[in-house]
């Protein structure tokens, strides 16, 4: 009789199931940071049974079963089941800070006509890289941070079918960034920054002889952009609320200001030259609307 009671208890026990699906309905990592009433811990803190492994084939018994009076029957028919293994779990980590590594491309639309001396159109394609970080302000959805980036663009043009002009701009940029998590995976952000702009330009002319002049200039640069970033939210990641890394892309637009360059390339000369003077070709202001597309990897 006691054996019968034990068999009934095993038969009435609930089957092992994947409770992950039920957890998907839980709040996201960002939303979870919002203070909740003192309710019992959500289901996410409940132990999560691992899926059952495939049964392992077992050879059939070769000896007669023991007498029923001395051995209770198995809880169910079929081969014996190995002991269940528990799936590894991680505790949720609410997002307090984020660090991004990214690369971007974009275009600056220069409105200064002088730019056309160096490019046959007004748009300058640039590429660069960024490292940035931010942290949550209070318990809200706003993140404040900053970072540094580097971008480079270059162009070449022929003036009046007689002169070659090229320009290369390299600029490190430090910026402050304010981001609002509209929904985890979708941020709206703005950043303002500035830094030095290192410009190298040259002018060359050629007929029966070839002459060229070269100039390097360091000017000030300020940049303000706003945009959106899309990234994988934690709930889409294998570790879900505990995920430490994600990735995404962002699109932004704004305005980049650079102070004017007084263009006066110094002519290339041979050894021991006559004192050689160049001329002031005018001012160049490489500034205008900018748009940017970037991809990033985020650690949080």
């Amino acid at each position: 009789m006691p054996s019968l009671v034990l068999a009934l208890v095993f038969a009435a026990a609930p089957a092992a199931t994947d409770r992950g699906a039920a957890e998907a309905e839980a709040p996201t990592a960002v939303e979870a940071w919002t203070p909740a009433p003192a309710d019992p811990p959500p289901a996410a803190v409940a132990p999560t049974p691992a899926p059952m492994p495939m049964p392992v084939p077992v050879a059939a018994p070769t000896q007669p079963p023991p007498p029923a009076v001395t051995q209770p029957p198995p809880p169910s028919a079929g081969p014996p089941t190995p002991p269940p293994t528990r799936k590894r779990t991680w505790p949720d980590r609410p997002i307090r800070w984020r660090v991004d590594l990214g690369g971007d491309i974009g275009t600056t639309v220069n409105f200064d006509p002088a730019w056309r001396a160096f490019d046959d159109n007004r748009s300058a394609f640039h590429a660069g890289g960024t490292i940035r970080g931010d942290f949550r302000l209070g318990d809200g959805r706003v993140f404040l941070g900053g970072g540094a980036s580097f971008r480079r663009f270059a162009s070449y043009n022929t003036l009046y079918q007689a002169f070659g002009a090229d320009i290369t701009v390299r600029e490190p940029l430090a910026f402050l960034r304010l981001a609002v998590v509209v929904r985890e995976g979708f941020d709206v952000f703005a950043h303002v920054g500035g830094g030095p702009s290192f410009t190298a330009l040259s002018l060359s002319s050629w007929t029966s002889t070839y002459n060229s002049g070269y100039q390097q200039a360091v000017t000030g640069m300020a940049d303000a952009q706003a945009g959106v970033s899309l990234y994988l939210p934690k709930k889409w990641l294998p570790r879900r609320g505990a995920a430490r890394a994600t990735a995404g892309f962002e699109l932004s637009a704004g305005y980049t200001f650079r102070s004017k360059i007084k263009v006066r390339p110094e002519p290339d000369v041979y050894d021991d030259p006559l004192p050689t003077h160049s001329s002031d070709l005018g001012d160049l202001a490489v500034r205008g609307f900018v748009w940017r597309f970037g991809v990033f990897v985020r650690f949080q």
Binding site: N211, G213, S279, D280, L281, G282
Partner: peptide, 20 residues
């Protein structure tokens, strides 16, 4: 002499970037 002479280059392009 070379010590009293001087060379000027690019003067025909002076102000070329300032045109509207």
């Amino acid at each position: 002499s070379r010590s009293t002479s001087h060379v000027h280059w690019g003067f025909l392009l002076q102000g070329v970037l300032d045109q509207e």
